[in-house]
Design a protein around this nucleic acid. Structure first.
Lengths: 201, 201
DNA sequence: AACCATCCGTACGCCACCGTACGGAGCCCG
DNA sequence: CGGGCTCCGTACGGTGGCGTACGGATGGTT
């Protein structure tokens, strides 16, 4: 499906296929020979474009990192104000967890979180997402520490939801239930503490 | 360290070691020959006690499931009332995410969530934990649907936190920050909607 | 047409792991 | 002391993946 017109493969073709494999089976699925078969080629091609399997893995991770940080942010930034952005963000990531292949990548990466190539990517992505969330909460008027905490709750809830939807889809909310759940989460996150106004700290 | 007095290995020895490996490197670390080396034995011993590697993996998963559901519940049930239990539970799982080896197992399992041996275990564990949370919220006076939603938020927040602490420990809260975060999460979870009492929908 | 760079297939050696065959040590029981 | 059972080591074949060597095809350039 990918080598119709082109008669010779590029490094990008390999990287793209590697990313697909990464989403399907984690890092261990990024294997030269299976990918070669999938591309209708052989290792001879691969080792022309790359020096090692690790280099391919790095390329795939790089791709994922770029897509993951561009795509979502771009979509969300279309909304006018911080509140709408937060809503859009939450609805997007909570709703699409079953479909979005990016989540599959992320979850598949969990097993190799310690891998020297994986760890830095994971950290950069998480850091960026948390930072973005934090700006949203700050712009909603929350002081820094509070924005930090709410970002963390929002982000962990997202991560957990993605994990749930991926590992045990039967237990993740869908349809009506999901809608009600997402609404409640959003309400909770932007809620200005109705009862104890002064921090107990 | 494990075959000091005993001179012959048991199936349980193998299963225990397999569980350790599972925590360290996921399912792919449950490999016969490396484990044999670790035990100071050879495959000859293994294939006496087990029929295949899958059987060992199943035994390790079974162990994890049992420990994971017994240990935590038992600890938490020591508390007197639902609120204290919820507090204890959250503090326990949010705080110890860096240490608890059970989390390492769980996160390592994410990559192979689709594995026929892994999937059922993951589902049973999640189901049980969500059910337990739900009873706590119900006993706190929340109606069923609401208890369901709060359980979900609590559980996904836990999962996400564990994931964060495991994959990017630098970004997970610690010490003071963790304490404040945990307090806020708990407050949020048991909060009875201060501002909009009627659903805005 | 000859040439050179690009791109890739084939074939090979290597390693890690699975599973099997088989023999032998150790021990209990007579 | 001899047989039999339990437990395990050794040795082997098979598979799947990595990386290398090398030759050949293809296409542009002069």
């Amino acid at each position: 499906m990918s080598r119709a017109g082109r008669r010779t493969l590029t490094a990008d073709d390999w990287a793209a296929t590697a990313l697909t494999a990464l989403a399907e089976g984690g890092t261990r699925a990024v294997a030269v020979e299976p990918l070669a078969a999938r591309l209708g080629a052989t290792k001879g091609s691969f080792y022309w474009h790359f020096r090692s399997r690790d280099e391919l893995l790095a390329a795939a991770l790089d791709r994922w990192e770029r897509v993951e940080t561009e795509e979502v942010i771009r979509t969300v930034e279309a909304e006018p104000d911080p509140l709408a952005r937060l809503r859009a963000l939450l609805l997007l990531v909570l709703g699409a967890t079953t479909e979005r292949s990016g989540n599959a990548v992320e979850l598949g990466l969990q097993g190799d979180a310690g891998h020297p190539l994986v760890a830095p990517v994971l950290e950069r992505v998480s850091r960026r997402r948390l930072a973005y969330l934090s700006t949203l909460f700050t712009r909603l008027g929350f002081p820094a520490a509070e924005a930090e905490r709410r970002s963390l709750l929002a982000y962990t809830a997202y991560l957990g939801h993605a994990q749930l939807a991926h590992a045990t889809p039967a237990l993740a909310p869908r349809g009506e239930t999901l809608q009600a759940y997402a609404d409640e989460v959003i309400r909770t996150l932007v809620d200005r503490g109705g009862e104890d106004d002064g921090p107990a700290e």
